[in-house]
Computed example of a mutant assay.
Amino acid sequence: MKLDDSSASPPYIQVADALRKAISTGELNVGDKLPSGPKLAKQLGVSTMTARRAIERLQRDGLLRSTHGVGVFVSATVPADKDDELAVLRRTVDELERRVAAVEQLLQPEGGTRS
Rank of each mutant, 00 (worst) to 15 (best):
M1T: 15
M1F: 10
D4L: 00
D5P: 15
S6C: 00
S6P: 04
S6L: 06
A8M: 14
P10Q: 08
I13F: 04
I13V: 12
Q14V: 05
V15I: 00
A16Q: 02
D17T: 14
A18V: 10
L19S: 07
L19Y: 03
L19G: 01
R20I: 02
I23N: 00
I23W: 07
S24T: 01
S24K: 11
T25R: 05
G26Q: 03
G26R: 02
G26L: 04
E27R: 13
N29W: 07
N29L: 14
V30I: 12
G31R: 00
D32R: 04
D32G: 06
K33P: 05
K33W: 02
L34A: 04
K39C: 07
L40H: 02
L40K: 07
K42C: 02
Q43H: 11
Q43F: 11
G45K: 12
M49S: 15
T50V: 00
A51I: 05
R52G: 05
R53L: 04
I55E: 00
I55Q: 08
E56R: 08
L58M: 00
Q59M: 14
Q59I: 13
R60F: 09
D61N: 09
D61G: 08
L64S: 06
L64C: 03
L64M: 05
L64V: 06
R65V: 15
T67L: 01
H68N: 13
H68T: 12
H68I: 10
V70W: 07
G71Y: 06
G71D: 07
V72P: 00
F73H: 05
F73L: 06
A76F: 01
A76C: 02
V78T: 07
V78P: 07
P79A: 10
P79Y: 08
K82W: 14
K82Q: 15
K82F: 15
D84G: 12
D84L: 14
D84E: 08
E85V: 09
E85W: 01
A87Q: 10
V88C: 09
R90M: 09
R91C: 11
R91F: 04
T92L: 12
T92H: 11
V93Q: 00
V93D: 10
V93I: 10
D94V: 14
D94Q: 13
L96N: 11
E97A: 15
E97K: 12
R98P: 00
R98F: 04
R98C: 03
R98I: 06
R99C: 06
R99I: 12
A101P: 10
A101C: 11
A102G: 13
V103F: 08
V103Q: 06
E104S: 03
Q105F: 10
L106Q: 13
P109L: 07
E110R: 11
G111N: 14
G111M: 08
G112S: 15
T113V: 11
R114A: 11
